[in-house]
Each structure stands twice: as structure tokens, then as C-alpha cells.
């Protein structure tokens, strides 16, 4: 009954830099080894941050009007700067974990900014709903990515790494073990020869 459980400590990890000041799951750690999917997702979010940052900087007033908050243009542009910083951080750092968590915090800020629009001008309510839906989707991706990064296994440092190179499990050696049980052929698990994958 095997399993592959790879979640990491949710509170603290030994040896994480800055672990006294910042919770380990939020702090950067060069030894994190996220799976390729999480790495790709983090990169995608980094590029998304840059694109959104540029859009918010250049079209801040238009976005604010679309949301029914015409005086919020400067705020949207400030959020654009935040997105650019986060995007650069994600794409430029060796471990994007704190930057992705920063995105999660930013999502919260965005939702808090847009949410009052639901009770505002009815002409813009649909736009507000569209914006909140988009924020929820991106926010979910951010949270999943941040959690997966925080849970990624750490590459063991050479100092603590145990040496398992001599653990063959074959007391008489690997060569003697090869094919030693070749005669085991239970009938109910044997594929008829005509149905075997050819080699």
C-alpha cells in the first residue's frame, strides 16, 4: 500500500534562511525543489503580473471608470507598479515563493478595492462582477501555486544527506540477484504469448 505524500511542514523548517523573522513557508529557500508544473505556473503568474502591471499603469483611469470608480485612477496605477515589482520578483528570483505569497496578499487588496462597487452605481455592477470573478480565478491559481511552492521538498544539503548507495537489498550482490526468481510465473498473471508487447 504505497503512497507518495510530499507535503512539507506547514509551520517551520529546519535550516530555512530567515526562519526567525519570517515563517519558513513564506521565506525564500534556494533548496526548494518544486515540481515542473508548479515552476511553470509560477513563471506564468510572473508574466501575467508584468502584463497586468503594464496595463494598469497605462490604462489606470480607463479601468477605474469601467469599474465605476472614476477617482481611483491613481490607485489602479499604484497597483500596476505593485504588479510590476511582483512580476519582476517572481521571474528574477531563485525561489519565487515569497513573491507568489505577495501576489496572494495583493489579490486580497484588489478584492477589497473592487468589492464596494457591488453596492455602487448599478450601471457598473456587471463590470464589478466580471472583475471579481477574474480576481477569484487568478487568486485561486495564486493560492494553489503558493501552497505548492511552500510544500515543495527541499533538496538535502550534502551535510545532512544520508548515503544510501550501499543499500542494494541484495546480500549476495546485484549480479547474483538478477533473474534469481525468473521461474515465478503464476498462471493467472501470465499473458498469452500472442498478446505480449513485442520487443
Amino acid at each position: 500500500m504505497p503512497a507518495s505524500a510530499s507535503r512539507q511542514d506547514r509551520t517551520a523548517r529546519q535550516g530555512s534562511p530567515g526562519s526567525e523573522a519570517t515563517p519558513a513557508r513564506l521565506a525564500a529557500d534556494r533548496r526548494r525543489r518544486p515540481d515542473p508544473a508548479t515552476r511553470q505556473l509560477a513563471q506564468g503568474l510572473g508574466w501575467f503580473s508584468l502584463a497586468l502591471g503594464v496595463t494598469e499603469l497605462t490604462c489606470g483611469d480607463a479601468i477605474a471608470r469601467w469599474l465605476g470608480m472614476p477617482r481611483a485612477g491613481p490607485l489602479v496605477r499604484a497597483y500596476g507598479v505593485r504588479e510590476l515589482v511582483q512580476g519582476a520578483g517572481i521571474l528574477g528570483s531563485r525561489d519565487p515563493t515569497p513573491w507568489i505569497w505577495a501576489r496572494v496578499a495583493g489579490d486580497g487588496l484588489d478584492v477589497a478595492t473592487v468589492l464596494p462597487g457591488l453596492g455602487g452605481d448599478p450601471r457598473h455592477r456587471t463590470n464589478t462582477v466580471v472583475a471579481l470573478t477574474a480576481l477569484a480565478g487568478v487568486g485561486l491559481a495564486d493560492i494553489l501555486c503558493a501552497q505548492a511552492l511552500s510544500d515543495a521538498p527541499l533538496a538535502p544539503s550534502e551535510r545532512v544527506r544520508a548515503d544510501y548507495r550501499n543499500r542494494s537489498g541484495f546480500p549476495k550482490g546485484l549480479a547474483a540477484a538478477r533473474g534469481a526468481a525468473r521461474d515465478v510465473r503464476p498462471r493467472d498473471f501470465t499473458t498469452p504469448e500472442g498478446l505480449r508487447a513485442w520487443t
Partner: peptide
């Protein structure tokens, strides 16, 4: 290995586990 496979390939992402799998052939 005991059952006589020509080659056995093991897939994982944890270094020490891969090392132990290599030790087993």
C-alpha cells in the same frame, strides 16, 4: 530485478530515494 527484467527504471523527484533505487539496480 529478481524476476529478470532487462532494465528497471524508477521515477521520482526525491534525491535520496532515487539514490536508493539506483543502489538496487
Amino acid at each position: 530485478i529478481l524476476l529478470g527484467a532487462k532494465q528497471v527504471v524508477c521515477i521520482d523527484r526525491v534525491p535520496e530515494r532515487l539514490e536508493m533505487a539506483r543502489a538496487g539496480g
